[in-house]
Amino acid sequence: MAVEQEHTDESLIKAVIEGDNEAFSFLVIRYKKKIFGMAYRFTQDYDELDDICQDVFIKVFDNLKKFRGDAPFEHWITKIAIHTCYDALKKKQRHTNRMMDIEDLPIRDTSIEAKQSAEEATDFLMWAMSHLKAEERMIITLLELEEKSVKETAALTGWSESNVKVRAHRARLALKKVLEANNERSL
């Protein structure tokens, strides 16, 4: 069993607070996969990804003393990751002029060709989402791509459940408008 798996989150956190920095690297090893996966959903950019993930773990390190243990550590770190990704989105509202037609999405289950088409579809979705506001993009990412429930999203963002529903509805409408506009232009 790996050293990082032998210890609980709580014991590692306690060790870090007491000055054992090495213990923090075990926490990083434990959660890096999750944080990378989540950050990638937000940024879709390998260059940005490492910086965002580093910022997440540095914030975690700096604020570890504030972790009260009311909720699981995983929830706490996810919350920090989401806020860091949101800040990154706000900083970088990307606008590309790439035009693709939504109707041309031949998605199949297998084969390399199908994989390419699926990647193109994802690229197109990300392009469409880049036209949304940072908060709209965040809510779509959490609800539709990360498949979080409204309750989970509310807990992670700090918004009320009804607020999440309203924002999700508006974000979806905004995204549909982008698709419509793109389709009209491509006709």
Binding site: I107, L125, L145, K176, L179
Partner: peptide, 12 residues
Amino acid sequence: KLNELFKTAREI
């Protein structure tokens, strides 16, 4: 179309 795109993006 949106649902289809979300589904595809989730699968990748």
